Computed example of a mutant assay.
Amino acid sequence: MKKLVYLLAFSIALVSCKEEQKDYVTFSGKITNKNSETVTISNPQFKFNKVIKVGEDGTFKDTMNVKDGFYRLFDGKEYATLYLKNGADINMTLDAKEFDETITYTGVGFEESAFLAQSSLNQEKLFGDKELMDLPELDFRSKVSSFVDDFNKRFEGASLDSTFVANQKQSIAGLEKYLTKMYNDKQYIAKNLAKGADSPKFVDYENNAGGTTSLDDLKGKYVYIDLWATWCQPCKNEIPFLKKVEEKYHNKNIEFVSISVDRQKDYETWKKMIVDKELSGVQLYAKEDKAFMDAYRVSGIPRFILLDPEGKIIDSNAPRPSNPKLVELFDSLNI
């Protein structure tokens, strides 16, 4: 009976001594050659923002109650990505002069952040390969495939949060898809949108002055095309510069063609903006037709294109009106 009581008491003692799961993460570290007096940990999605003071010797420490997930660390100049969970006790060291190359993590629950740090270095090296997008297709695919395989091998035997692993596998699949699209687009542009190639065409776009206009209607003059939208602030920022360029080359052998890619719901906004901002040149509405933009592999606006009088490409990604190089280009063509 005494033995049974003793064993029971011993079991209770073990349970009492077992450390409970902390509802916070402890984050500490030391920064050599620090960039500021603080580091900031944030996650806008969680509406989380924590500023931690960095001592004169570069050390810092604080506790945070967090939701499991990814956080951004900012040292006043550069960023790093962390993965934080309550209960973790992570220590970070780095030299701010060689930020990515020197980040190290130790402690409890550091593995995910260390994984991210290594991934960042590997990805930086891959994107730093200036020859990657110019490789023959089989060599390109082989190099990207090897990068992905090496990434996935790092999961083997690693003690990582299952949610984190799922996210990273989705992330690497997305990166592979992104790189492949970049490569395919560059090869397409080199083949189909090179200087001297026939330009893709747009047909029967609505002309604000009345009727419709097709690219073929503009043959005989140089054509400077502006792809824009009323909701695009960078597009609107170019308007004053475009007006000045149009005025400088008024009555010259060039047409300035602005093509609105607004959705139908913004059609009246487009019409009104032409009046309010006194837009000149040829003002066209694409009527939600994306064929011309897709043919030029447009991924963002504003986008400017310059064609010669025969409808051949001079520059498929021409300088913006705000760029002095545009006037230099026009003058070199004796427009």
Rank of each mutant, 00 (worst) to 15 (best):
N253L: 02
K53F: 14
L193S: 05
N323T: 08
I301T: 05
K290L: 13
L242R: 10
H250D: 15
S145N: 14
S113R: 03
L242E: 13
G210A: 10
S145W: 00
F70W: 09
D294C: 00
V148G: 00
P309T: 10
S214P: 02
L82A: 03
S28F: 02
C235Q: 08
K325V: 09
T26E: 11
Q123A: 02
L8T: 13
R154E: 09
K77H: 11
A114I: 01
D185K: 02
G55E: 15
M273I: 10
D89G: 00
D276V: 06
P234N: 08
V108I: 15
L126S: 04
E98N: 15
G157E: 04
R72D: 14
M273A: 09
E137G: 00
F60G: 12
R320F: 14
S28L: 03
K61H: 06
S119W: 06
V51C: 07
S171T: 10
I103E: 03
F110K: 12
F155L: 05
F147N: 02
L73G: 08
P136E: 11
D266P: 00
M92L: 15
N65Y: 12
L242Y: 08
N167L: 03
Q264Y: 04
D185L: 00
K61C: 06
D149M: 08
E137I: 05
V298D: 01
F70E: 11
K143E: 09
K325L: 07
D139R: 09
S120V: 03
I189H: 01
V327F: 00
F304I: 09
G157H: 07
G128Y: 07
E310S: 14
G311W: 03
A286Y: 04
K169L: 11
T32N: 09
N323A: 11
G107L: 02
Y83C: 02
I313V: 13
Q264F: 06
Y249F: 15
Y296K: 04
E206M: 12
L307A: 04
E112L: 06
L279Y: 08
I31R: 02
K2S: 06
V144C: 06
D216K: 11
L138P: 00
D161N: 13
I274T: 07
P309W: 07
A286T: 07
F74N: 15
V245W: 06
K265V: 11
K3R: 11
N334K: 14
Q233M: 13
L73Q: 09
L73Y: 09
C235E: 08
V25E: 02
T38C: 08
S258Y: 05
F202M: 07
L326K: 01
N208A: 13
